[in-house]
Design a protein around this nucleic acid. Structure first.
Length: 874
DNA sequence: GGGCGCACT
DNA sequence: ATCTAGTGCGCCC
């Protein structure tokens, strides 16, 4: 090799495949011995040869880069340096240390689940996967060098006693919901990993009573209110013997998990958690463990980039906090190996190494050079890493961009078989496409031959396709073309895959309905109105409309992200309905970003009972009607509940049974069973919006940098809402009923108290008394007046009451059998599992989803959204 | 738009 | 004997 990077094939191979001893649980292994086995198992195989070839290609890239490097003039470097410094200055100016981003990562996730469900495995080295490939291994196996992404047959050589368990994704999927308990807006990166923003939670935590930070140990599955994750056919081992067995050599096993500080009234041990973010995260991990019997590790830092690195620091079953000071961040970065940074992989690392860059501190020294040798996105990413900068907001779920299926097999060289396999793949893909109601224009065929050479061939059709025949027609053409190229030799394939991309928007497939009859009547469409959306963003949410039509829960987060920065009010094609939608969704985003959740699984037990005893709660809430304003707009998760479940509901309000719909525009209950009447109501609401088209705006995040317009915009919306309400009142000529919507807020203008309707739609509580100071809060459980105006405190109290109710009176009753009032406090969300999440708004801010210190483009390599998992989640 | 590589899990 | 599957994005043409 010209640059001397790899002098032999073996070295070249090992530089790609050798044991990466950075991995947790891999410390102090006999690396040479392990690498020798890896080498011996691989040498001479086609895979090996291909790896060597790829290695050479990388080396060529490096050579090319080095040639460029020597041609760089002093002047170029000087100019580049100036540019780099300017950017660094700008980035520094925008550094945002105000967020507390948490990255949670389940420890050896798949393996841990399998061990939990099959305790005999606990003492053995085991891995999840197949002889061909392992997904992960437990910590026993890691001692032998067995790790994720290693083929099982090699792992067996390293560790002959290794037990390999096949993957069971359905089981792993169930775990995901625990993250939502903590932050419904969490960003899942995979089945076992997520980012959460703890900023607001910690702010509120400081004023929390100790009781709400007290958590019981699970002593048996039935004694606590913690829901069980659905785990088909397995026994539930004692949690306390799980953790030490799983991670006996954990660097940071929290002893508190094993030696509880006290014994609760119910006989259960409990632990009190503090108010700091470390304690909050520790509490979360504790609860995850109590609930799933699995441990998680976490990193706490001012941004996602750092949080991710931090979560790895004390793995397994540990956490690490990087203080939110510039000094701490820069210290942390100095000795951080570049490879630890998300987005810098094997190849990037090697290229950087060739420039003598191995730790992040080297970045700043070489940044001018890097700016000349790497693409703009790449070096921008590098410079941010060098400054310890990263995203301070959690990008929400985005739309899927492609869908594919592929299969690996033993050599397949008969044209007939290849074609029928291709057909099979197309069938699978078409089925998946149908599930998400997708149609795409680009069909890509992927082929890997027995020498591991990968080819992709794509065709973009003038129309979108989704059916088997359509996809196959395109894929077959591509395959035949490749066959012809090779003929008379046959293609010798080991993998075939079909992918569809370039999805068309839902609107192209089915026009949106002005009246949201689509929410209500599956299959029925109103062809008289169609909406051409100018913005691709807004229109590119194909799964949404269909899901509405199926009356499934609408993924509002998805919808929310259909509305992105750059949307403005002067888009003529945007329907008013969509504008109203957009605005509300945007407001949801605002409140979502400022909401914090009060853990309340016990309350969730209550909520899931649904239609009981609303009345008993109503009388307990006295308060003032709020002035509409931004903070108390009430446009939060509640709305998503209303919207997503804007279908007929039968309720027993006021002792009578009535059919009603919740209007998705004004949120009022429309008491009718006639869809036409309901649609008329919605149309009226929409025309209310239309009279103020410029006020129902979707703000451009770029032009609203400091969120200063938020208040103004909220006022506009609330004004409209007030007017709308007044108008409706006139129409119906009825006084306010308890179900009428009012935003209530406490003295600080932060909170609204609502009573939850049984079927999702939220009805707001009419204030009944006013003491001049704010709402008088009476606990719906113990019926005692609470000496506080602070809804957070009140929530905590209710929480505790419910806990006691559930634990001490109802014992092991399951959630569905508990018959208690349904209580919701504002900005709550009833999750699909019936969990009641309590949150409280704080000052609306952070409207910008892209904060000054977040990367200029999340498209920076490796930092884009990961949608892999969404397929599993849906 | 096509082809292919990188990165991540 | 045996080295995944799925996705998004960058770069180059």
């Amino acid at each position: 090799m010209e640059n001397g990077v790899a002098s032999t094939k073996g070295e070249g191979f090992l530089s790609r495949m050798a044991l990466n001893d950075n991995k947790a649980g891999m410390e102090g292994l006999d690396r040479d011995k392990i690498n020798k086995i890896i080498m011996e198992s691989s040498k001479g195989s086609r895979f090996y040869e291909n790896e060597v070839k790829k290695e050479q290609q990388v080396n060529q890239r490096i050579d090319k880069m080095m040639q460029q490097k020597v041609q760089i003039t002093e002047q170029q470097l000087k100019n580049a340096q100036a540019q780099v410094e300017r950017l660094a200055y700008e980035l520094e100016k925008r550094r945002n240390l105000s967020h507390l981003i948490v990255h949670v990562d389940m420890d050896a996730f798949y393996a841990a689940v399998e061990m939990r469900d099959c305790p005999e495995l606990k003492d053995k080295p085991m891995a999840v996967g197949s002889m061909s490939m392992l997904s992960t291994s437990n910590y026993h196996a890691r001692k032998f060098g067995v790790r994720a992404a290693m083929p099982g047959f090699i792992a067996k050589k390293l560790c002959p006693d290794l037990v390999i368990v096949p993957t069971n994704f359905d089981k792993y999927r169930a775990i995901r919901e625990i993250f939502a308990d903590y932050d419904p807006h969490f960003q899942p990166m995979s089945l076992d990993e997520a980012y959460l923003d703890f900023t607001d939670h910690v702010k509120l935590r400081e004023s929390c009573p100790e009781s709400s930070r007290t958590h019981l140990f699970r002593t048996s599955t039935s004694e606590t209110g913690e829901e069980q994750i659905d785990l088909p056919h397995e026994s539930v081992p004692e949690v306390r013997d799980l953790s030490p067995v799983l991670f006996e050599d954990s660097p940071s096993s929290s002893p508190c998990f094993l030696s509880p500080e006290g014994v609760g009234a119910a006989g259960g041990a409990f632990e009190v958690f503090g108010t700091s973010v470390e304690e909050a995260v520790r509490e979360m991990r504790f609860r995850i463990e109590q609930k799933t019997m699995l441990t998680a590790s976490a990193g706490i830092a001012p941004n996602t980039m750092l949080a991710k690195v931090c979560s790895d620091k004390n793995k397994p079953n540990g956490q690490y906090r990087l203080p939110s000071t510039r000094e701490a961040v820069m210290d942390f970065i100095q000795n951080l190996p570049v490879r630890k940074v998300s987005g810098i992989g094997k190849v990037s690392e090697k290229m950087l190494n060739a420039l003598d860059i191995s730790s992040c501190s080297h970045f700043s020294q070489q940044m001018a050079l890097l700016s000349l040798l790497f693409s703009e996105t790449s070096w921008h990413h590098f410079i941010q890493v060098s400054l310890g900068l990263g995203s301070t907001y959690l990008p929400r779920h985005e739309e899927r961009k492609s869908m594919s299926t592929e299969r690996t097999f033993r050599e397949l060289n008969k044209a007939e078989e290849q074609l029928s396999l291709c057909r099979e793949l197309c069938e699978d893909l078409a089925e998946d496409m149908k599930k998400e109601d997708l149609k795409g224009k680009t069909v890509t065929l992927k082929l890997k031959n027995v020498n591991f050479e990968v080819k992709t061939r794509a065709v973009t059709l003038p129309y979108a396709v989704a059916t088997v025949d359509e996809i196959y027609a395109a894929a077959k053409d591509l395959l035949k073309t490749e066959m012809e190229k090779e003929s008379p030799q046959p293609l010798r394939l080991r993998l075939m895959g079909v992918r569809i991309s370039a999805f068309i928007s839902s609107d192209d497939k089915k026009p949106l309905q002005k009246s949201i009859i689509c929410f209500l009547q599956p299959g029925k469409t109103d062809s008289t109105s169609s909406y051409q959306l100018e913005r691709e963003h807004l229109s590119s949410c194909p799964p949404l409309v269909q899901k509405c039509q199926r009356q499934e829960e609408v993924p509002w987060r998805t919808k929310l992200w259909g509305i992105k920065e750059g949307q403005t009010s002067d888009e003529p094609q945007m329907s008013f309905f969509q504008k109203a939608h957009a605005k509300r969704l945007q407001l949801q985003a605002v409140s979502a970003s400022t909401q914090e959740e009060v853990h309340n699984e016990k309350a969730s037990v209550i909520t899931s009972t649904g239609n009981h005893a609303h009345e008993s709660v109503k009388s307990s809430i006295n308060g003032q009607r709020s002035e509409s304003n931004c903070e108390a707009s009430g446009l939060s998760e509640n709305d998503s509940v209303s919207l997503s479940e804007a279908h007929a509901s039968t309720s027993d309000r006021g002792g009578r049974v009535s059919e009603s719909f919740t209007c998705p525009v004004c949120f009022r209950q429309v008491e009718t069973t006639d869809l036409n009447v309901f649609n008329q109501h919605i149309d009226q609401c929409l025309s209310d919006v239309s009279r103020k088209p410029n006020q129902i705006t979707v703000s451009d995040s770029e032009s609203d940098q400091d969120g200063e317009n938020d208040h103004e915009e909220c006022e506009v919306i609330d004004k409209w809402r007030r007017e709308s309400e007044a108008q409706k009142k006139q129409e119906s000529n009825k006084p306010d009923s308890p179900q009428d919507q009012h935003n209530l807020k406490n003295d600080s203008g932060q909170t609204v108290l609502l009573i939850n309707g049984e079927n999702g739609p939220v009805t707001l509580q009419q204030p009944q008394a006013c003491n001049g100071k704010g709402p008088v809060l009476i606990c719906p459980v113990c019926q005692l007046t609470q000496d506080t105006n602070d809804l957070t405190m009140f929530n905590r109290h209710v929480d505790l009451c419910l806990n006691q109710e559930v634990l001490h009176e109802l014992g092991g009753q399951t959630s569905s059998s508990i018959n208690l009032p349904s209580v919701t406090v504002t900005n709550t969300k009833v999750t699909d599992k019936g969990h009641l999440l309590l949150r409280q708004t704080s000052k609306a801010k952070n409207k910008r989803r892209d904060t000054p210190s977040s990367p200029p483009s999340k498209k920076a390599r490796g930092l884009g959204p990961r949608n892999t998992i969404d397929k599993f989640l849906r």
